[in-house]
């Protein structure tokens, strides 16, 4: 699996589109963090008068990490679309399918490579708020925990993105279908809240993220994220097996 991760990382880092996405995300992170700080400074005189007022760290976890994670989620379909669908279009997927490597290893290798890129993006996101430590007291552990949850959430999104990529014939349709699937899973929480159907909200990926970002990791949330990743990996593996049995049509 290591050769596949290494190969995929090498290919990803040579893709100019990835660097453009990271640059845009960094701009978004900077904007969100400074906006959250500004809003906190405006409210601070009033917050100081109330009991149990949120500290800067708690404030940033709600006002910065959630929108930053949403921005990252929008980038996931673009990160994942090339992995199978794009490779299928340009014929590069055959390199892996012809190699003496199992389909599960290919699926996990690609997922791990995307996980490494997402870890870098989460680290970048964390650095934006941790930089504020120079001027304000910040709970480093709480923010690192929030970003670990963000990474886990993005990994689940990447699983869905890779599954769409493995099932689609073109990179564009993979990107659109995974973006649609992720937005639908995000909006399910709104639908569940307005209709009062709890199980609908529980299916939403945003519900589990919000709970995780609140500072408490429920076992149910962890199981949800791991289940999404496992099911997506199974779908990818199955799609690759089908490609090996019925041939890869480019």
């Amino acid at each position: 699996m290591i050769p596949i991760i290494s190969l995929e990382l090498a290919r990803t880092l040579r893709n100019p589109a990835i660097w453009l996405i990271v640059t845009l995300l960094q701009c978004a992170f900077a904007w969100y963090s400074l906006s959250a700080l500004e809003a906190y400074l405006e409210l601070q005189p009033r917050l100081a008068l109330s009991d149990n007022a949120p500290g800067l760290s708690t404030w940033l976890m709600g006002r910065y990490t959630l929108p930053a994670t949403f921005a990252c989620m929008l980038a996931v379909p673009v990160l994942c679309m090339q992995k199978f669908a794009g490779d299928r279009q340009n014929g590069a997927l055959n390199c892996l399918l012809m190699a003496p490597v199992s389909s599960l290893k290919i699926a996990l290798g690609k997922l791990c490579a995307v996980a490494c890129v997402l870890a870098g993006i989460s680290a970048l996101s964390a650095l934006n708020v941790l930089a504020l430590r120079a001027v304000a007291p910040i709970d480093t552990v709480a923010l690192l925990y929030a970003h670990a949850c963000q990474w886990l959430y993005l990994l689940a999104c990447a699983g869905i993105g890779l599954a769409c990529s493995a099932l689609c014939r073109s990179a564009q349709s993979a990107a659109f279908s995974s973006a649609a699937a992720l937005l639908m899973l995000w909006l399910l929480s709104q639908g569940g809240a307005t209709s009062g159907i709890n199980w609908l909200a529980e299916l939403s990926i945003a519900t589990h993220l919000s709970r995780a970002l609140a500072g408490v990791l429920h076992t149910g949330d962890l199981v949800y994220f791991v289940a999404v990743i496992a099911v997506s990996t199974a779908v990818v593996t199955r799609a690759l097996e089908n490609a090996r049995v019925f041939g890869e049509r480019t």
């Binding site: 190969l7 090498a10 290919r11 040579r14 014929g91 390199c95 190699a99």
Partner: peptide, 29 residues
């Protein structure tokens, strides 16, 4: 598959990589 060398038409290559890096990657696979 470990005993098969296959050149499809068109060849299946990683366009982003340099020739030697691509071949090293395939060798490690």
């Amino acid at each position: 598959r470990a005993h098969i060398g296959y050149l499809p038409d068109p060849p299946s290559l990683h366009n982003e990589l340099r020739v030697s890096r691509h071949l090293r990657a395939i060798a490690s696979l």
